[in-house]
Design a protein around this nucleic acid. Sequence first.
DNA 1: CACCTATGATGAAACTGTTTCATGAATTGT
DNA 2: ACAATTCATGAAACAGTTTCATCATAGGTG
Lengths: 344, 344
Amino acid sequence: MPSVRDIAKSAGVSVATVSRVLNNSPRVSDEAKRKVLEVANRSRYVATVGKRSTTNIAFVYTGESSLGSPFDATLMRGMALGMEEFGFDLMVLDARRARRRHEAYSHMFMRKGIRGAVLRTTAPTVDICRQIADEGFPAVVVGSRIEEPGVSYIYSDSRQTSQEAVDHLTGLGHRRIAVCLNIVDDSDHADRLAGYRAALASAGIEYDEKMVVRATALREGGAQLIRRLMGMSPRPTAVFITDPYTAMGALNESRKAGVRVPEDLSIVGFDDAELRYMVYPEMTAVCQDALAMGREAFSVLNEMLSIKPAPVSDQVKTTSRSTVIRRSMQTWLEVHDSTGPCPP
Amino acid sequence: MPSVRDIAKSAGVSVATVSRVLNNSPRVSDEAKRKVLEVANRSRYVATVGKRSTTNIAFVYTGESSLGSPFDATLMRGMALGMEEFGFDLMVLDARRARRRHEAYSHMFMRKGIRGAVLRTTAPTVDICRQIADEGFPAVVVGSRIEEPGVSYIYSDSRQTSQEAVDHLTGLGHRRIAVCLNIVDDSDHADRLAGYRAALASAGIEYDEKMVVRATALREGGAQLIRRLMGMSPRPTAVFITDPYTAMGALNESRKAGVRVPEDLSIVGFDDAELRYMVYPEMTAVCQDALAMGREAFSVLNEMLSIKPAPVSDQVKTTSRSTVIRRSMQTWLEVHDSTGPCPP
DNA sequence: CACCTATGATGAAACTGTTTCATGAATTGT
DNA sequence: ACAATTCATGAAACAGTTTCATCATAGGTG
């Protein structure tokens, strides 16, 4: 564990200069900055003020993630439970804004006294998760299944329940069942599509690519979806919508377009909070427990942090990759009023 | 600004013991703990590690506040904007869990490296806000108007718009207009009641206490409300519901009870996020911009923190009360489909 | 051109808070 | 009753940050 004094000696400057570089003080030459950052990053420097051990956990989002979404909000509430239970403090951080140029993610975390991170990511920013895992920093991805080596995650296994959802539709006599996926592909939506296909297969219905529709994860995406479905011929009599907001938008647009739910169209949606009760009609949905996921994230990090890191010899710089923990949470199907028998 | 060494001298112990007390180390006698905490609290101790100045802002809720509500979620998104703009980091904190016994709030904040606080409170926990203000810690209450000396706040002035909302109803010919308030009284709901009364007065309608109904700020509260209203005689033809979730619950229960909205009952709700678009029919509502409030909170704290505190002489311990800043944000009325002409 | 002044980068030293280690006191087990 | 263990504590060592003095350089003015 190098100190500022070690770095100073190695970089050929004073500790004062090292400290200035590490804190972005304006009065420092580019040359000194370059030298210090080079040594600091190479030696995996972590700031430990007076050997103080902080207990901050960061909730890291990546700018494109929707911090105010019901899922994130519920997640946050779950994390608040974890804070109490495991005695951590929670910091909210935008991974891309908070980091400085040429700074390793783990360095950025340590600079802020963060011991572990809960990562929230979307498909385009998966590389951030990979990089953090590569640096060996204790982190867990929540709400996405990132199949990269070294990446820990907690996700909801929605494949089985998605299949049940579509089984529910075939059980009601539906044969022309559409599925709506997000415009960006991720493992979750792949799971749901797999569940959809399995259910079709078990009901002896042939898979038809034209029944797979893409929409944005917004109200407007759901509206678009309904307009698309109504233009199809033959029309689907049911649709499985894999995103909460899209499902909500679809329900509302149906009403505007004069499509009766469930008489003309059965809709199975997705819910990670309470949305299914807010819409009309109350929505049959595949549900996941974002609250429990938030709490579980802290449990996982607690486990990671209680494993003592292997002592790194001064000579060999091993990449001390942290333990990989992967957990899957249950989802369940709730049948409400947006699904009904297939129209004749 | 006392240091651990000053406190040690004053309390008659070593700096090591002071540090142990301040960090809840188990190996310390009650006697030493008492002496140190006494001096630390009296001298307004703040931890400044190596004169490092942290830039953490805390989002403080009080356990009873609903962290996962749309309002708080949107607020959080707004604060994320403020983080970027003003260069702060955000920490999430439960005021009551995080604090230790006999610890002043400002001490607790400083122990965690927090420079300023955004407070989210409900009526029963107003005293926490008052106490933090009394300690002179830079803090701003968001979403409540706390008329206590020294307390800064940002709130939505919903009085005027509430009046407009009820004007809208009287303009549609309604005469028997109920209002639904939260079961706990706070200044916001008082404002909305005042707006309601003003609108009645200007329309020449007499104020009737029986038309003031209380409900919890939950879906179920809204359901209860509808059952109450339907049992009244004569029945109100319109209701102004001052909480988003209550309004949502009322809309859904109306449908279940066979009450048509707006044909039988006009509903004006309240919205601080996007709820008005999620329900059916889309809800006429008094809207506030929680996003802007979150951002504004950081602006206010930035202002507070850039004012240098008066230097405290070693002899006179003045209570350095921080500047009081109060801002009000605009609310607006959006007319959608849950209000209509008064039935004959 | 010479000289003074302002600015900027830097390091030694001073300072802040935390932890380790040694020490003496108190408690407990046999 | 005595040894062993545990506990509370302070001195010292250590980690990071900032202040202050120093030196170099650039720029304006006679």
